[in-house]
Amino acid sequence: MCTVGGGPDIGNIEALVAKDYECLDCKSKFKGMGRRPMCPSCQSRNVKPA
C-alpha cells in the first residue's frame, strides 16, 4: 500500500491517493489513505470524507 524510501531517491508524494476526512466526534480534519479510516486525534471511526 505504501512505500517510503527506495535507495537512490524517494518522493513523488504528490501522487499519494489520499482523501480529506473530518471526524464527526472531535471535528478534527485530516488527510488519510487506507480502507478503515479512523480519527488520529480521538481514535473515533465516526469519520466522513470532507
Partner: peptide, 13 residues
C-alpha cells in the same frame, strides 16, 4: 526500482 519511489505503490527497494 526507478529513482523516485511512488509512495502509493507496493514496491520496495
Amino acid at each position: 526500482i526507478q529513482p523516485g519511489t511512488h509512495p502509493e505503490q507496493d514496491v520496495l527497494c
